[in-house]
Design a protein around this nucleic acid. Structure first.
Lengths: 353, 353
DNA sequence: TTGAAAGCGCTACCAC
DNA sequence: GTGGTAGCGCTTTCAA
């Protein structure tokens, strides 16, 4: 089914049909009506590929993320989509699952689709890829990776500052032995966050210590990481998690071990995704404004209010500490006495009191 | 950057470049090497739109869902994507947010993209739209809506049977006053589930009763719905939720009101998404196999092992009851005495014991 | 094994 | 206002 069929049926040229399809030049209302009628009757749907090929423009932006299943990434995507739709753009997402070769595939696909702009929200970015992208002519937004450059916007989070607030807060509650739960990610953010924790701890010298454990970025990964951390025999009074979903996973493991949060162990998340309010106990976490990230991405890639897209800049986000119910003072009776007993028991929920 | 540039640089015709790009006909290894080199040097990326336009084929399937934020839909999407990628297909998702007009937009867009197949996993489907789709030549999979037809696969869940198991289970625990929490959805599944509850209850005649409340399909919606339900003064001993995320939301509201689950109120979910294992208490729910749904979709749309796509059939899924910690026997002391006191107190987490 | 050329379905420019 | 038509960048016969 092509334009031609519609043209014939309406008794006009394909040029005219194209005009009514695009509302471009003025078309005689009667003619227009006839065309519209023909379109409806024939159930005609224009071919998007032919359109973009002929038109040359794109009207779609790409978003690549590490793990859509993690609501953090999903929220960013949603925010982008909201703004994009409002401006008549489509957005296509792709998931890398933290795999560098998938990232490379995704990027290639986006370029082949000739997206008008591309947001890369991943942590496994290899420098070579960054260079390659930076060379092209598609406007790009990087989150957490790469450096400012022509045609590139960089959004980054001031992890150091966030972690500082967090660790100082924990220290003020008397915590000295910390645990850190991260996810597998070859470079970047995770290391940055863990490093930040270590650096801040260094300020208190021998006063504090931290041990870490990593696993998949998921609820299950958080649980496993917590299990590993505790299985080593280490007894942290507070566990800092790289993000909220892993924290929720850790919560589960602690519960199964009969450890109460925050009485026996404090737990913190990162991102402040919705679930952090709904889990039990609600998580103390650091807020990162996904909507702001989404808006910035659209501003950079599409532009706002007929302003041209605006790249070539760097936006720094400051995480904000959100204190809820998963953190508390270190208790007088060390948690270790409880753990010693429960450690070997099967991992089941404790009977309700 | 076009094929032509590559051809010139490699000293061959564009036809030859196209051949190496597609591994179609045999190309002289030396020529091939020269072409590949030119491609690399020029950082050439083929134009996907031109390719699909010229080639006529699609290699992408579309998936439309009501709410990607709900892991149920997301899991289905992931499953489809996994299978599709394995067969060299891309998948593009779209979200309707339960809005009929968005659904219509999404469908149109998918058709314009000339997807090779389309899965429609939504609950707000209007009959007119179904007819329109069924008329086309794209293979379609509907979930939960529509009837068998040419070029169409129907996947449906035997809600009645699932709800029967669930309600009978609750009845066996002594529950008589039920609450039902659903989401706003104009027709279909929700009504089907609630209706199923009512029908099953009818079997016990005056023995049981149910009242329902609806809200957005989200954690927050679940909380609000629970709030509304209880604010009416109704005192259910068990709350049946239309899905797991709303159940998690409800859990939060109950906790804030000082109601213990399952001692004071039992709560059930639906879907058995990951979070249902990780919330506290872990949810009793009905399992729906998202992976199976995903596989079926790919089978129908793409085909497996070089078999042709296989539509024109109906697949019925039987939900399986998964009993966890959110349900229990009705306690001797009615929950109402506790509620009466706590009802007017501010909604905050209770102090830890 | 390679090249020439005819589309694929549309947009946009130039005439009328 | 409307029609004719030259591309858009590629795939795919058909010849050579």
């Amino acid at each position: 089914m092509r334009l031609e069929a519609v043209a014939e049926r309406a008794g006009v040229s394909i040029a005219t049909v194209s005009r009514v399809l695009n509302n471009s030049t003025a078309v005689n209302p009667k003619t227009r009506a006839r065309v519209l009628k023909a379109i409806k009757e024939l159930r005609y749907h224009p071919n998007l590929h032919a359109r973009t090929l002929a038109g040359g423009k794109s009207k779609t932006v790409g978003v690549i993320v590490s793990n859509l299943e993690n609501p953090f990434f999903f929220d960013v995507y949603q925010a982008v989509e909201g703004d994009a739709h409002a401006r008549g753009y489509e957005v296509v997402v792709a998931n890398t699952d933290y795999k560098p070769e998938q990232l490379s595939t995704c990027i290639r696909l986006m370029i082949e689709r000739r997206v008008g702009g591309l947001a890369v929200i991943v942590s496994e970015m290899e420098p070579a890829l960054i260079d390659e992208l930076a060379g092209g002519d598609v406007p790009i937004v990087f989150y957490d990776v790469g450096a400012p450059r022509r045609n590139i916007t960089n959004i980054r989070v001031n992890y150091r500052q966030g972690i500082e607030k967090l660790v100082e807060y924990l220290h003020s509650l008397g915590h000295q032995k910390l645990g850190f739960i991260g996810h597998h990610s070859t470079l970047g953010p995770l290391h940055e966050r863990l490093k930040a924790v270590k650096d801040v701890i260094a300020k208190y010298s021998s006063d504090m210590e931290v041990r870490s454990s990593a696993n998949k970025d998921s609820l299950e990964g958080g649980r496993q990481a917590a299990r590993t951390l505790l299985a080593s025999g280490y007894r942290p009074t507070a566990i800092v998690c790289v993000n909220d979903i892993m924290a929720v996973g850790a919560l589960r493991e602690l519960r199964d071990r009969g450890l109460r949060v925050p009485e026996d162990v404090s737990v913190t998340g990162f991102d402040n995704i919705k679930i952090s309010e709904f889990c039990s106990p609600a998580l103390t976490t650091l807020h990162i404004p996904r909507d702001r990230i989404g808006h910035t991405i659209c501003e950079s890639l599409i532009g706002v209010d007929h302003q041209p897209p605006n790249t070539d800049r760097e936006i720094i986000l400051d995480p904000e500490l959100v204190v809820r119910d998963s953190t508390g003072r270190v208790s007088v009776t060390p948690a270790s006495s409880r753990i010693a007993v429960l450690e070997t028991s099967p991992r089941r929920s404790q009977p309700k009191l």
